[in-house]
Design a protein around this nucleic acid. Structure first.
Lengths: 228, 228
DNA sequence: TTGCAATTCAAACAATTGTATGAAACTATG
DNA sequence: CATAGTTTCATACAATTGTTTGAATTGCAA
């Protein structure tokens, strides 16, 4: 009859503190204080600090991946087995962005924790992170179906850029707001998502006409089809 | 007659170690060991660990900004007072990327240190970082000149996306390589730069035709001119 | 109730880290 | 040479951190 209460309290407090202040600034004593439990409880229930972090990461990672895949499947069903480019990108970056931007009270600690985890590469997480590639491959497969004539490398670059823009927007939202004097509204989450999706979709579907380096340093995209 | 030798040794070792392993994993003892100097030398020459980091950051930041501005000015001169979109973006992301990608031996510890600094937001750096916005504003001004009819917010988003793609590419080069089974060649630095410049330029200059959200969540770009 | 295992707790431990100290070594000037 | 100022060095200090320990407490079954 294990008492999961303390365990859950620790997980909640740890996730919240890590999401807010990052891994470097949060000690076990901070966590147990926030959770209202004894210091030794962490080692009793999780074995070590690293195992606590790892458990948080795998749990949240699985949930996040599932959310993305659910949206991808839905898009594939809606498209009769083949999702279109924008829908795929939307499924890839939507879930995370929705949890990280927008009004403070609507953000999820889960998403913010995952962003932290992908920023500060702390050892226990680094060891697990390899599985992410397998997850992304599913989106590459879907994208290849949506753009059968597109160069394969370009597809990977497109996914990479979509993730890059999404990721950096959650990181540097403040800088962007300051730089633009508030003209860039990062609180309108769906608009931000659409903007990033549009940008990434363009890199995948628009043929570059005037290349700066004519000797082919940047290979021309070979996509003809845009079904958004 | 101050002996700058020890000082320089510390700066070099610190920059290299921070660039390689990040701020979290490097202690003063690691630095002095690598520099071959005494532990107390750090506090003697810099006052504290934080001041050492801050000095590194401002020095390298200034150098990096100067490099970017030099390229921007050159592009403006070449364009008769007005640089074109791609040239501006090239000046913005080129210097950093050149120092962070490509063959190991050609990378600069300076660039990699700056990337680290922008990733792990350590207190002494966070305090200084605000000046970055003023620096970026110069690129916004140049871009407004290149795209007089472009919506202002779109310009900021474009710069933001360019930085995002560049930044994330230096961070996740390994993942991209693994995901693409080596099909995405991140070692061809100039090709990568061109690719990112192209992508960012597209978000600024290509009018989106089919928007996913017709009620205007993602405002249509208003740029007509592409002078690449 | 009694007994036993699971859990909680206060306290201590060991290691690490940034910083400070005071003596020693060095350098240049008188 | 002598001496004052600068720099280096070994060492110690104080604070923090993850972890461990052993006793107390709790919850439940016999």
């Amino acid at each position: 009859m294990p008492s999961d209460r303390t365990r859950a309290l620790i997980l909640d407090a740890a996730e919240r503190l890590y999401a807010e202040r990052g891994f470097g600034d949060v000690t076990l004593r901070d966590i147990v204080a926030a959770a209202g439990v004894n210091l030794a409880a962490v080692n009793y229930h999780f074995g070590s600090k690293d195992e606590l972090i790892a458990e948080l990461f795998v749990t949240r990672g699985i949930a996040n991946n599932r959310e993305r895949l659910t949206e991808l499947k839905a898009a594939e069903v809606a498209g009769g087995g083949r999702a279109d480019v924008k829908a795929i990108l939307h499924a890839l970056i939507g879930p995370t962005l929705r949890g990280c931007l927008g009004p403070e009270n609507e953000r999820s600690t889960a998403s913010r924790f995952m962003i932290r985890a992908s920023i500060e590469s702390v050892p226990p997480i680094r060891r697990i992170k390899n599985r992410e590639v397998d997850h992304l491959r599913k989106f590459a497969v879907a994208m290849r179906r949506a753009l059968p004539d597109c160069d394969e490398a370009d597809i990977y670059w497109g996914l990479h850029f979509a993730l890059a823009m999404a990721h950096q927007t959650t990181r540097d939202a403040e800088r962007l707001t300051k730089l633009s004097d508030g003209q860039c509204d990062v609180d309108d989450v769906e608009a931000v998502i659409d903007r990033i999706v549009d940008a990434a979709a363009m890199t995948l579907t628009v043929r570059t006409t005037a290349s700066k380096s004519p000797e082919g340093a940047a290979p021309a995209r070979r996509a003809e089809r845009l079904r958004g």
